[in-house]
Simulated assay, not measured.
Amino acid sequence: MKRALEQRLQDVEGFRDPRVDLEQYPTPAELAAHVVHLAGLHDDLDRTVLDLGTGTGMFALGAALAAAPRVVGLDVDASALAVARENERRLAPATSVDWVRGDATRPPLSASNATVLMNPPFGAQRGNEHADRRFLDAASRLATVSYSVHNAGSRAFVESFAADAGGEVTHAFRAEFELARQFAFHDTDSKTLDAEVYRISWA
């Protein structure tokens, strides 16, 4: 199942004109398929799935292909959402996705028993520090459980934030993925990014 999902997600188009201020890096299909598969094993796809900062829809479409009952993809960038809609038409998942434009750190949504899947900005750009903290805060208010991708070395921060918000990190694993050159300040054609993925129970 995971391999078949990864193959489908390989067809998800990434950002056509990525914005550095939003740290728009595409989530690799392999990583998205692994996270969605793990969520399925824990029955976390049996409820509404929210993809906060969906970009061009990788996690949202993964959940839709895995037959989550309802999927919402939220992003502030209208251009990225336009590509996400095209991706949905191309992949034609059994579950349709509700694409919503809005600030993922102040989501225009109400939910209390949702699963959040997200690859938030790492906060590496000046003026965007602690961006992942704001995304986690939103997840803590919307979700029963969340899965999120963070920069390597984030475990102490994520565990502390979760505990302060009444949550608990139940699973964590490292991930590596290749990022193609997409911004002018990148000095190589590709770079391997070290990351960590966390499952947090907010119940």
Results as ranks from 00 to 15, higher is better:
residue 111 A to L: 06
residue 58 M to A: 10
residue 87 N to K: 12
residue 139 A to C: 05
residue 65 L to Y: 03
residue 182 Q to W: 06
residue 68 A to E: 01
residue 47 R to Q: 10
residue 100 V to E: 06
residue 162 A to W: 03
residue 96 S to W: 12
residue 137 D to V: 07
residue 145 V to F: 02
residue 161 F to M: 11
residue 63 A to M: 03
residue 99 W to F: 14
residue 195 A to I: 07
residue 60 A to R: 01
residue 66 A to R: 04
residue 57 G to E: 06
residue 54 T to G: 04
residue 129 E to L: 02
residue 76 V to N: 08
residue 42 H to I: 00
residue 125 Q to S: 13
residue 9 L to Y: 13
residue 167 G to I: 03
residue 190 S to N: 09
residue 199 R to G: 05
residue 146 S to H: 03
residue 62 G to P: 01
residue 24 Q to L: 10
residue 165 A to N: 11
residue 14 G to L: 08
residue 185 F to S: 13
residue 128 N to G: 11
residue 84 A to K: 09
residue 155 R to M: 09
residue 203 A to F: 09
residue 186 H to W: 04
residue 20 V to D: 10
residue 115 T to P: 00
residue 92 A to N: 15
residue 47 R to S: 09
residue 101 R to M: 13
residue 104 A to M: 08
residue 46 D to Y: 04
residue 151 N to L: 10
residue 17 D to S: 15
residue 100 V to N: 08
residue 61 L to A: 08
residue 128 N to L: 11
residue 95 T to P: 02
residue 130 H to S: 13
residue 123 G to R: 04
residue 188 T to S: 14
residue 171 H to I: 12
residue 24 Q to N: 11
residue 90 R to T: 12
residue 55 G to E: 03
residue 201 S to F: 05
residue 150 H to R: 10
residue 81 L to P: 00
residue 195 A to W: 08
residue 96 S to A: 15
residue 196 E to V: 08
residue 141 R to D: 03
residue 132 D to T: 06
residue 128 N to W: 03
residue 151 N to C: 10
residue 124 A to C: 08
residue 46 D to S: 13
residue 143 A to E: 01
